[in-house]
Simulated scan of single mutants.
Amino acid sequence: MKQYRLRIFGMVIAILFSSIAWSQDCQPLGKFTNTNGETNTIAIGDTYSGSAPLTVTFSANPPITNDATTKYEWHFFNQKNIHLPFLIRYEENTEYTFTEAGTTKVVLYEILKGDTTRYNAISFSISESSLQMPNAFSPNGDGINDIYRAKPGYKSIIEFKAIIFNRWGQKIYEWNDPAGGWDGKYKGKEVAQGTYFVNVTAKGADGKEFRIQRDVNLLRGYTQNTR
């Protein structure tokens, strides 16, 4: 009887240790920096709505007791086909840049000794594109409207180029990021107050193309208190 009890006790201990070895309990996460420069973390079951391009680092985050033979697969699904992934990454941690408008679901599959665990999706909703350029700015050093740039609220712009010309057609400045802009200088020196011209070509994550050509009024003497 004593040997029987010892045998049962040994079997229980073996089952417990086996459970510890097989229990993975990953905590999949996505980390990214939004257009405001803020770092965000999104977990399984969550949805993030934002603008492209959006680069996200995905981490499986397995426990320390993770079995070394565990394999990981990140499956990416879009709204065009919710059952067939358009991309599979075979790694514990991976990075992906969202450049298309619409909803994408990212699912982690954990494979251990023939058993597969599917975690809930992390979802990303990328907005349609929009872009507008202002017709004036006042680079007078007051910290208000000192830089000529795209109007706040632009969304999902994945390609961008803007060129400033003077009234004689001479190129004064150019930049390739909608977050950038012109400070009213040419080769480090302030240009004269007056009317300039901007030519913008851009493309959105939804395929929309933008071609904006307009006058730019440089009002160096203007302030918020100007009447």
Score class of each variant (00 low, 15 high):
218 L>Y: 03
123 S>G: 08
82 I>V: 12
216 V>M: 08
207 G>R: 09
212 I>F: 05
119 Y>G: 05
22 W>N: 11
17 F>W: 15
140 N>W: 12
96 Y>E: 01
30 G>I: 00
37 G>I: 08
30 G>F: 00
182 W>Y: 09
68 A>E: 10
62 P>E: 04
146 D>S: 09
74 W>H: 06
187 K>G: 00
200 V>R: 00
70 T>D: 01
185 K>L: 03
30 G>N: 00
12 V>N: 01
74 W>A: 03
178 P>S: 01
200 V>M: 01
167 R>H: 13
64 I>N: 02
218 L>V: 15
107 V>I: 15
50 G>R: 05
37 G>V: 04
74 W>Q: 00
96 Y>V: 06
194 G>D: 05
142 D>T: 04
169 G>T: 04
19 S>T: 09
204 G>A: 06
96 Y>I: 08
123 S>Q: 12
2 K>D: 14
156 S>A: 09
10 G>H: 10
27 Q>H: 10
23 S>F: 13
115 D>R: 13
27 Q>T: 11
136 A>K: 11
18 S>I: 09
68 A>S: 14
190 E>P: 04
104 T>D: 01
11 M>A: 13
49 S>W: 07
192 A>L: 15
132 Q>F: 13
6 L>C: 12
192 A>K: 15
176 N>R: 05
17 F>V: 09
55 T>L: 10
112 L>Y: 05
16 L>H: 01
121 A>C: 08
87 L>S: 05
180 G>C: 09
120 N>T: 12
127 S>R: 07
118 R>L: 05
6 L>P: 00
157 I>T: 02
16 L>Q: 07
96 Y>F: 15
105 K>D: 14
168 W>Y: 15
18 S>D: 05
105 K>Y: 07
135 N>C: 08
90 Y>D: 06
140 N>D: 12
123 S>W: 03
107 V>W: 08
118 R>T: 13
2 K>S: 13
121 A>K: 02
87 L>D: 07
120 N>M: 08
92 E>C: 08
219 L>Q: 14
91 E>H: 04
147 I>V: 15
89 R>H: 11
49 S>K: 14
94 T>F: 02
120 N>K: 14
70 T>R: 03
54 L>R: 03
66 N>W: 01
44 I>F: 10
20 I>P: 01
115 D>A: 07
68 A>T: 12
214 R>H: 12
7 R>E: 11
201 T>D: 12
27 Q>F: 07
